[in-house]
């Protein structure tokens, strides 16, 4: 995962690029944490925001546990 962060984000306007090189953390911000447009029949819990938040938090804190956030509330927002 640390290697993933080392990927330089694509900096110049280019055609919609494939998934290679897209930083995982930015991808998860979008693929998981976006608004629910329609409810599916199954696995609604995945699209259910509270669960996603909890799981995403657990996932991402495991990514960054070696470098704890300097302020307890996790940031200014």
């Amino acid at each position: 995962m640390a290697a993933e962060r080392a990927v330089v984000p694509w900096d110049s306007p280019e055609p919609l690029s494939g998934p290679i090189g897209v930083p995982l953390v930015d991808l998860l911000d979008r693929v998981l944490a976006t608004g629910v447009v329609v409810s599916g029949d199954l696995v609604i819990a995945i699209a259910d925001v509270p669960l996603v938040r909890v799981s995403l938090h657990a996932l991402l804190s495991s990514v960054s546990e070696r470098v704890p956030a300097p302020w307890a509330d996790g940031g200014p927002l």
């Binding site: 640390a2 962060r5 953390v25 956030a69 927002l77």
Partner: peptide
């Protein structure tokens, strides 16, 4: 605004604001 990521893993010490 999306959530901020806090300290960046990898150890360069920069903080996401």
């Amino acid at each position: 605004r999306l959530r901020t990521h806090g300290a960046v893993p990898g150890g360069d010490g920069r903080v996401h604001v």
